[in-house]
Design a protein around this nucleic acid. Structure first.
Length: 461
RNA sequence: GGUGAGGUGGCAGAGCGGUUAUGCGUGGGCCUGCAGAGCCUAUACAAGGGGGUUCGACUCCCUCCCUCACCUCCA
């Protein structure tokens, strides 16, 4: 699979040995997750699902940054401990992303649970004289790492002259960033240099090294993390190991709203929780993979609506497939069609995760099913359904299963209802329709038959 | 100012040096107890402006204009 690597600026072949290890920078848990976070996580979820579909083992680590000024400020405001804030939003995170049908990572390490690993790493950098203790904390000496700026393509002298860097007399160089900040407040820990808490970037270096080792396959996150977060992470980790952190650095484009970046600091966020209630997981996922991951996507209700229209069509096609009872021989050309679509689907994902292209292939399958509905026999649908399900699975789309027992029950009620309809006993027939609707089964009458659809379950909390 | 990405039809959004993207929307038809959906069919000067390379460019090169992101916390 080819993936664009931010560090080299080229697409690179993902070298798959025994497994693919991915470290994704998750969220700082001081507020609810929004659609921007969702996009990033879902992009990597699709990478995982695709790789697994071709038999590759994938290990994903997603971290929680649970020590941060914003968490502390929020805790002060609410007059609770910092851990109360972070655990609340960690739970929210799980609820949101489970709701989005995102596969769980093998581990969600928290900064606060890796203080010793962080201190060990800092100690080693201090020993190497790459880091130094000062009045306010322990700092990474950027000038000691000559490759600093290689990820974000920034020149050290330009960064300095940019003058945006804070003036801090206690640092040797304005660009130096904190590995450890001295503080007595909650939360804080003892360290050889003084009580305090870790700086922002060091936890990712410590935890990725701990769980994935040196030079793992993919390191990812949102585009906005390129600088300074990932740049600093590279500096810390590589100064320590002298090896590249990862083979491929993948960065996901921003979600914008009215053309402007959505971010917590701008206050224009749309939370996952809110979207799940209004649109359900599949539509949100379609939004997240509807454009190429490297580009920004502009959020709008109109766009969501469009994805919902498409998704409803896919759902209908799927329900029709599983309700096909037509006997007879196979329709001509089905095998060819399926193998062609399968191939195009994989090819799209192989080429830098072109999910939009993959999606268009999926919709072609949908259109094929709906357009040939009258011709497809049960034998055909038995071949189509696995392909349909495989594509949905890779994209993380999901249609609720209905038990055989329930199917038989529905079928029976439909039969009863159609008898009433034949006799023009519409009150009785409508009553059956209402009864099923109350159970989340929607009926659609067609010329020869009646199709049922399982309603999308929206997120309830 | 620096760095990076990008400007495609009413909208969303891909690929590709010469052939229909795909979808939404829109028009017409079919179907229809109601409801909903679907099917068929039609529909898009498409390429930010200006040069150039080429037999031929949306696709390559140059230039200008514009947008966005990052350069401070941010997925």
């Amino acid at each position: 699979m080819m993936i664009f690597d931010t560090l080299s600026g080229n697409e690179k072949q993902l070298e798959i040995s025994a497994k693919v290890r991915m470290y994704i920078c998750g969220v700082t848990v001081y507020d609810e997750s929004h659609i921007g976070h969702a996009r990033t996580i879902i992009v990597f979820d699709v990478i995982q699902r695709y790789l697994e579909s071709i038999g590759t083992k994938v290990e994903i680590i997603v971290n929680f940054t649970d020590v941060d000024d914003k968490i502390i400020n929020r805790a002060k405001k609410e007059n609770v401990r910092s851990s109360a804030i972070s655990s609340r939003y960690i739970q929210e995170y799980y609820d949101s992303f489970d709701g989005l049908n995102v596969k769980r990572a093998i581990k969600y390490p928290k900064a606060t649970e890796h203080i010793q690993d962080i201190l060990d790493l800092i100690q080693s950098l201090v020993n190497k004289k790459i880091a130094y203790a000062s009045k306010n904390g322990v700092y990474f000496s950027v000038l000691k790492f000559p490759e600093y700026g290689k990820l974000s393509r920034k020149k050290v002298d330009e960064l300095i002259s940019g003058a945006r860097v804070e003036v801090d007399e206690t640092k040797k160089d304005p660009l130096d960033f904190a590995l450890w900040k001295f503080s007595q407040d909650d939360p804080s820990w003892e360290s050889p240099w003084g009580r305090g808490r870790p700086g922002w970037h060091i936890e990712c270096s410590a935890m990725s090294l701990k769980y994935l080792g040196e030079n793992f396959e993919i390191h990812g996150g949102g585009r906005d993390l390129i600088f300074p977060h990932h740049e600093n992470e590279i500096a810390q980790s590589e100064a320590y190991t002298s090896k590249p952190v990862a083979q491929i650095w993948v960065h996901v484009g921003m979600v914008t709203i009215d053309g402007e970046k959505m971010s917590k600091s701008l206050g224009n966020t749309i939370t996952v929780k809110n979207l799940l209630q209004n649109w359900g997981p599949n539509v949100i996922r379609l939004f997240c993979i509807g454009a190429h991951y490297s580009k920004p996507v502009d959020y709008s209700a109109r766009l969501l609506k469009e994805h919902e229209t498409n998704w409803n069509k896919a759902r209908l096609a799927y329900h029709k497939l599983i309700q096909t009872e037509k006997e007879g021989t196979e329709m001509e050309g089905v095998d060819e069609k399926l193998s062609q679509l399968k191939e195009e689907f994989s090819k799209a994902l192989e080429e830098n995760l072109n999910t939009h292209m993959a999606l268009s292939v999926f919709y072609r399958l949908v259109t094929f099913c709906l357009g040939n509905e009258g011709y497809l026999t049960k034998l055909d649908t038995q071949k189509i359904i696995p392909v349909f399900e495989e594509m949905m699975n890779i994209l993380g789309l999901k249609i609720k299963k209905v038990s055989e027992e329930e199917k038989a029950h529905i079928k029976n009620l439909i039969k009863q209802r159609n008898t009433f309809r034949e006799q023009k006993m519409y009150e009785e027939s409508d009553a059956i329709r209402d009864k099923l609707a109350a159970k989340g089964i929607e009926l659609k009458d067609e010329i020869q038959k009646t199709i049922w659809l399982k309603e999308e379950k929206k997120f309830k909390k």
